[in-house]
Amino acid sequence: MRNLKANLLELVRRTSAELPDDVVNVIARSARQEQEGSNAQYAMNIIVNNIDLAKLKSQPLCQDTGSILFFVKAPRAFDQLAFEKAAREAVAEATAKGYLRQNSVDSITGKNTGNNLGPGSPSIHSHQQRGSRVDVRLILKGGGCENVGAQYSLPDVRVNANRDVDGVRRVILDAVIQTQGKGCGPGILGVCIGGDRATSYLHSKEQLLRTMDDVNPDPTLAALEKDIVVSANKLGIGPMGFGGATTLLGCKIGALNRLPASYFVSISYMCWAYRRQGFVLNDGGKIVEWLY
């Protein structure tokens, strides 16, 4: 596929420097809700300025350019190995240009590879789809918010959570309490109910591919998503944990079937610097649409 590396480099640059409009709109709205002169309003104003400045300067919104997560949907004939090679080259070049921080560390020796390449980086999730188009999505997820992700196994007596929707609600709100201040709030939750430990976490991250304003097609989950945001914002944790009106900007929940013996609730916390972007390539390899 022609120009694939150049297109992926542009995807990385855009994702690192520019937040998608749906996220910017929600942040701007919540900035207006904080009390005049409060620490929370001070934080939100700096956040809004930072979003503008990063775009203007074409530089990383946040210095922790995070885990590099590609999600690809492509036709059967698509060469996944060629994609992976192009993605690795684009990531190395983006690092040299300063779009990405040197962010890949050998877990045993502690040595930073210096180019963001190494086992598990970048991480690429590919699926087939019918038709000729190729959808490539990218999320950059920083370590601060990744560290506060949580996986609960229900029942959980600590928070009195049973294996039902109320139990799910209890553990999600507990996660919001535990996370306070640490994950760069106001944040967005991606949640998966069910699955095994690995698929559950992955599906919780896939929820973060949804737009802020979409509505869950499952009415039970749609109601829960709404309730979580309203309830979390009553906790008073606020931006950066300074106290204030906005603790969560959004919550997206998916469900997978589970084993009778298991009931996991996996929560991926995304910071306000919600870096997600994507494009559609036609069969000639040309970008025909930006997805966010």
Binding site: I47, N49, L53, A54, P60, C62, F242, C271
Partner: peptide
Amino acid sequence: LHAIGGAAQVLAE
């Protein structure tokens, strides 16, 4: 001193 997490550009300036 709590800086604003994620505000890497404002702070780099």
